[in-house]
């Protein structure tokens, strides 16, 4: 077997995908919008699927969010995880229902619930994946979220690629230096070893992170984070433009249309 450098499904790839997602470097529709309007947009689509039991409307709403996700240029890692999750969930639930004597109605019911959940998830992917963490945290501030949460958002985004890389380095060290062994039945021994390494990696990660967090919090203290007088200044950076209004209006019309579609079909 020959090793080669892989561009996908490697630690490096995951890290890059995280960075791309986190910093909305793909561009896309929502990246240009005011965070408050993006969150409002998301809230609309998160709530409306629960207001109907009509399959046509639900499919229409799902289509709407799917188009939005495409416009938001969601990345392959996120989209892949999303799809796998929903397809398998549906498959298992249906399999179980079938065992208990379910029929096509059960399947329809499951399609309904799965599509509703998928619509909400896809809307959140489209919205939050496109938002710059800074804008998101400013948006949260504007809506009176605790300062700690708003800071957590932007700090988390900044640190995540770094921490993930650190984990990768430590894990590599463990893999190279720890005892090797056989793969075992179904690779279970190998799986067990990998599990142990993943756990053991946390010992150095805990201590290294504690050390760097101390500097971070000290520096936050010296830079007035706890003085927290900057809320208004940051909120003032936001502005709602024509694009924001247009996107929300189009969405509202589309949602109403989806519900009308339902009426149309019932009459027919």
């Amino acid at each position: 077997m020959s090793r080669k450098t892989r561009d996908v499904l490697s630690v490096e790839w995951v890290k890059l995908e995280l960075i791309r997602t986190a910093y909305a470097t793909r561009g896309g529709l929502f990246a240009k919008m005011d965070p408050r309007m993006v969150i409002s947009w998301y809230l609309i689509l998160a709530v409306v699927p629960w207001l109907t039991h009509d399959l046509v409307t639900i499919i229409a709403l799902f289509a709407l969010t799917a188009v939005s996700a495409a416009l938001a240029r969601v990345g392959p890692l996120v989209l892949g995880l999303f799809l796998i999750g929903f397809v398998t969930d549906f498959g298992y639930a249906f399999g179980a229902a079938w065992v208990f004597g379910g029929d096509h109605e059960t399947a329809l019911a499951l399609v309904e619930i799965t599509l509703k959940l998928a619509t909400v998830s896809l809307a959140s992917i489209a919205a939050f994946v496109s938002l710059d963490p800074e804008e998101l945290s400013t948006g949260l501030l504007a809506w009176k979220a605790p300062e700690l949460l708003a800071f957590g958002v932007s700090y988390g985004y900044r640190m995540m690629p770094i921490l993930f890389e650190e984990f990768g380095t430590v894990f590599t060290g463990l893999r190279l230096r720890s005892p090797q062994g056989k793969k075992g039945f179904l690779g279970l021994r190998a799986l067990w070893r990998w599990g142990t390494w993943a756990v053991q990696a946390f010992y150095p990660i805990f201590l290294n992170t504690a050390k760097s967090v101390r500097t971070t919090v000290e520096s936050l203290e010296t830079r007035g984070f706890t003085a927290a007088q900057g809320r208004d200044l940051r909120i003032a950076q936001l502005s709602i433009g024509a694009l924001d209004v247009a996107v929300v209006a189009v969405t509202a019309v589309a949602v109403v249309g989806a519900f009308e579609l339902d009426a149309l079909f019932t009459i027919a």
């Binding site: 995280l18 809230l43 998160a46 969601v74 996120v78 995880l81 998830s121 959140s124 992917i125």
Partner: peptide
């Protein structure tokens, strides 16, 4: 938030 697993409320 990041992986799009965000389920809002």
């Amino acid at each position: 938030l990041l992986m799009g697993d965000f389920s809002g409320l």
